[in-house]
Design a protein around this nucleic acid. Sequence first.
DNA 1: GTAATCTTGACTATTTTAGTCGGGTATATA
DNA 2: TATATACCCGACTAAAATAGTCAAGATTAC
Lengths: 140, 140
Amino acid sequence: MKLNTKSRYAVMALADMARFDGKNPVSLRDISLRQSISLLYLEQIFLRLKKNNIVKSVRGTNGGYIISKNINDLKISDIFYALDEKVKTVGCKKELKRGCNGKSSKCLTHNLWDELDLHINSFFENKKLGDLVKRKESRN
Amino acid sequence: MKLNTKSRYAVMALADMARFDGKNPVSLRDISLRQSISLLYLEQIFLRLKKNNIVKSVRGTNGGYIISKNINDLKISDIFYALDEKVKTVGCKKELKRGCNGKSSKCLTHNLWDELDLHINSFFENKKLGDLVKRKESRN
DNA sequence: GTAATCTTGACTATTTTAGTCGGGTATATA
DNA sequence: TATATACCCGACTAAAATAGTCAAGATTAC
């Protein structure tokens, strides 16, 4: 049970960006160097982030990306959503047909998975990108 | 972000067993039929459960498996542990060498992953196998 | 006009996962 | 004591997911 690297890198990259004022675009090249993430891979990730309006792009020299909204309003779950990180523990819904259709006695565990999903999702719903930066600063 | 089938099947199978008195061994064949899980796969799963003292086996005709302890004391996390289900969201620990060694500014997200792990783990620590059966019964 | 930077789809190697196979061993019961 | 039922266990494999690269652009600052 783990997150995929796309999601993780996305959060890392955005946290990296969040340390700056938000006025000047940050280039992927810089993020790539600071966070040791492949530039080509970052491009793929930011494509998704842009499509989901999490970042805005500025083309050309001195271009880069800017975080669209206030970092204290940007939920971690929004980032995951953009990258298709399904926080789904896979209940019986997916494999229906043969079994669990609600009333079946097969799915004793049905509710467990539902609860877990809820539990994890609420964690990410309540965490904001801003929290990550704040925490770090107050600690150093 | 999802659980693997081994863990899920293990919980399903044990929940299935938990409905019985706990005196008579339950055969994998029966579980296989009731839960629509491949018998061969179940064998593999129960091998691990047995090694981790979650179930005891009874060989021969009319044999099967018995849950070792009281179902109200059996944590879901114990089951996952037996099947190597790592509830690890992969922080920077694994990929150290080049980056985050605690003091590095690279790992703004370090704490996020740690918190998440804690959050998920505590969920499973507090859930007992008995809870699953109770819930279902009270609902029907 | 050229260097820096974003844009995009397609491709690929590697790893993980899910599940099977085959050949055992133990024991209840007829 | 024969036999059917069940556990035991390592090795294997097909399929899917993942991580990451490649190639070929399009914009814009200077």
